[in-house]
Each structure stands twice: as C-alpha cells, then as structure tokens.
Amino acid sequence: MKEICFFAGAIGCLGGAIAVIGLRNPFYSVLALIVHLISLAGLFLLLRAEFLAAAQIVVYAGAVMVLYVFVAAYVGNVEESLWEPIPGQRWLAPVLGLALFVELSIAIIGSGLKSLDTEGPTVELGFGSPEAIGRLLLERFLIAFEAASLLLLIAAVGAVVLAARRREEATS
C-alpha cells in the first residue's frame, strides 16, 4: 500500500515538474506547479510530516500559487525568443541536468548511511504533529523563528515599495 502511494505521489511530482518546464504558456506552468505541490504534500504525509503537509497545501498551493496566478494573468503570455545567448544552450542544459542528477544520486547512494536502506525507525503517534513542531520552534529554534518573522515583515514592506505606483507614473 505504501509503495502504491509513493509511486502515485512520485509520478504526480515528476509529471508536474516536467510540465512546469515544458509548457509554453506561463499560466499552465503555474497550474502544473499546483499539481506538483499537492502530490508533494502526499509524500510528506507518507513521511509522517502531517503539519508540513497541511502547511504545504494551505500556504503554498493556496496562498503563494494564487499570487502566481494573478501575476501570470496580469503579465499575460510572454513571448519567449528562440535566440540563445550561449550556442546550443537548449541541448546542453538537459545534459548538465542529467549529470547533476547522476552526481547527486551517487552522493546519496554512496554515502553509506545504513538507515537509508530502512523504512526509518518506528516513531510515536505525535511525530510531526503541530504540537511537536510548535514546541521545537518556540523552544530550540526561537531565534530562527523570530528571524523568519522579521524576514517576512521586510518582504511585505519591500513588496509594497516595489508595487507602489510612482506619482509621475500615475499622472501620465
């Protein structure tokens, strides 16, 4: 059963990812990324990260993707030129990507970590629950938590500054 769930999630993830880079229309790419994110949330559930799976769907597939959909609709279909700054870039890039994948896989499989060939230790019922994550965030990782909230505030202010119309622009 676990295998079926894993392969279903993996096919959804990979299909979504390939559709993101393959589709010509940016709007369809955004929709493909939503498929990818929801399949990934399923994989998170298999890995017993329940809170993160919920956060993935609510924050990513919900809020962030709505932002993308709005901007993709606002900007419209951008013509992508076929001109290549580096000759043969379109052929070279997949080769380099394949090399990256092979290298990462060698690093993972060759790492010799014994626990990688197991299904992981058995964990108690509350593993990955909001309670456990919240306790870790507010006790051990309090500084990271506060820094993240400060970063979000700066990003919000930056977005307002970037998106605000200049006065001369508004009058013209």
Binding site: K2, E3, F6, A10, C13, L14, A17, L43, L46, L47, G97, L98, L100, F101, L104, S105, I108, I109, S115, L116, D117, T118, E119, G120
Partner: peptide
C-alpha cells in the same frame, strides 16, 4: 519504502 527512494526522487526534482 526505503528512504533512499525519496532522496533519489528529490535529486531528480532538483535536477
């Protein structure tokens, strides 16, 4: 499901 499957999938997605 072995954990290395998940890691290889993550490498594939990253590439």
């Amino acid at each position: 499901m072995d954990m290395s499957w998940y890691l290889v999938l993550s490498a594939l997605l990253f590439a």
